[in-house]
């Protein structure tokens, strides 16, 4: 029937526990019995935490907020993949029906020097904010804008800019990349604004500044494995990285500037 499938399964969770940034972490194992397959992955963690609290233990810290796949806050590395086994979803949209009875599930935080662990599975992604502050904007003060329909944008360009803008800043690209590179994240914003007429004025400045900040944050370098694209819950395309390379190479070599 068209309704809840309502199966229950037993799984074993091996979860990373780390008190704070400076201390070493280790795995902790928990048996989860009778987990409803209708539960989301995070709801399973809610149940685990509820149990830990009543047992007087420390619950597992993890980031999450909207739980509908758009805020980009949830960030678990599950069985060797960011956001777990399903393509195109965030951790909060992963449901237990993606797992089988008896599965052992290994859960780790995003691992990157630029994303230091705060506690357990929660990491600090403020490096992304700093990259945005370095150039991820159009310099237009409130009230300066002319009528919206004065700017004509070909539908294809608008759609492509939108596809790049769909990035939720979760950091799965960094987590997935064997080099912990943030190129997909940065290139999505560079692309969005490079594709639109509004972004032209600061086009060169923007890509130079954002890449400079990206490098300063300690992210790795892109080797075009495509893992980021494959794991991105919003399907951000590798084309954006090529576009950023192009923008950057142009701005630093061909462009008539110091």
């Amino acid at each position: 029937m068209a309704g809840s499938s309502g199966k229950n399964i037993n799984v074993t969770i091996k979860v990373w526990r780390q008190k704070n940034k400076n201390q070493k972490g280790q795995f902790e194992t928990h048996e989860m019995k009778g987990v409803s397959t209708d539960m989301s992955f995070l709801e399973m963690f809610d149940v685990l935490n509820e149990r830990l609290i009543t047992e007087g233990k420390d619950p597992v810290a993890f980031d999450h907020d909207c739980r509908e796949g758009i805020c980009g806050m949830c960030s678990m590395y599950i069985n060797g993949r960011p956001h777990g086994p399903k393509q195109g979803v965030t951790t909060c949209q992963l449901h237990m029906r993606s797992f089988k009875d008896g599965d052992i599930i290994v859960v780790e935080p995003w691992r990157s020097a630029a994303f230091p662990v705060i506690k357990d599975l929660a990491v600090d992604r403020s490096s992304f904010d700093r990259i945005m502050a370095a150039g991820g904007f159009v310099s237009v003060n409130t009230g300066n804008a002319k009528d919206a329909n004065n700017i004509l944008i070909p539908k294809d360009d608008a759609d492509e800019a939108f596809n790049a803008a769909a990035c939720i800043g979760c950091g799965a690209c960094v987590a997935a990349c064997k080099n912990a590179s943030a190129m997909l994240f940065v290139s999505a914003k560079v692309s969005q604004l490079a594709l639109l007429p509004q972004g032209q004025v600061e086009r060169e400045e923007r890509v130079l500044n954002m890449v400079k900040q990206m490098d300063a944050e300690g992210f790795g370098n892109c080797t075009n494995t495509g893992a980021c694209e494959a794991e991105c819950p919003k399907g951000i395309s590798l084309e954006n990285i090529a576009r950023m390379n192009r923008e950057y190479i142009h701005a630093s070599t061909i462009a008539n500037r110091k």
Partner: peptide, 13 residues
């Protein structure tokens, strides 16, 4: 790249 991930994953798929 090695420096960008000082602590590796226990499991990578």
């Amino acid at each position: 790249n090695k420096k960008a991930r000082p602590q590796g994953y226990a499991q990578v798929n």
